[in-house]
Amino acid sequence: MLESRLEQADLLKKVVEAISGLVNDCNFDCNDSGIALQAMDNSHVALVSMMLKAEAFSPYRCDRNIALGINLSSLTKVLRAAQSSDILTLKAEDAPDVVNLVFESSEKDRISEYDLKLMDIDQEHLGIPETEYAASISMPSNEFQRICKDLMNISESVSIECTKEGVKFAAAGDIGTGSVTLKQHSNVDKPEQSVEIDLSEPVALSFSLKYLVNFTKATSLASKVKLSLSNEVPLLVEYELSGGNSSYLRFYLAPKIGD
């Protein structure tokens, strides 16, 4: 059986909010190392991959592999009943028909309990190869969100060009063109404001802004975002979850080709 307790319901609320624009139904795969999720969006352009390590919970118990097939809009409805600071416990039997969610307020002696019906989801798992990316950029997550939203006013696609000079996000549309260039800089007082660029060779790729803007719904989960690029492979957009236990929310986006 599964029994996992999260100190802050907010984490799950935000993860579900961040992915529900891309994915309708998906399996939450639970085993002794934690809860994982992998799903393609409906148009098979993007892939979401989440890992919530057992260490993110206290306690965490899952002795068998259990797949919780969940409709995300139904889960969103249930999670609306959880206050952000509630303690959230997920429970399921070994071959479950439902997942049980309990929200506890430590201040108010209130316990809310919901059973969410599960569904059978026959989901294809994709193997994601280990990639040595040609460029990786770590930057403030809110800045990435801002850039994507601003450039979406100009065009439906953005080119991301990374050289030793910096990283340039550029868009060209009917009304004109726009670009934002970021150079590497460190902010000693506010490290979350730093921009770090790790480059082994120059990269230039184009992506659909609609998907990138969708990914940035995860902005409130982490102060930093990491973009990893290599020519001719999908972009990786990564948010760290719940600090320091290597839990993550990753989005992969296939590039656009031609012009």
Partner: peptide
Amino acid sequence: SSNQRSISSFFTPK
């Protein structure tokens, strides 16, 4: 305009 690639053309089923 440019062509959108599919993610499954990069990542193969396990």
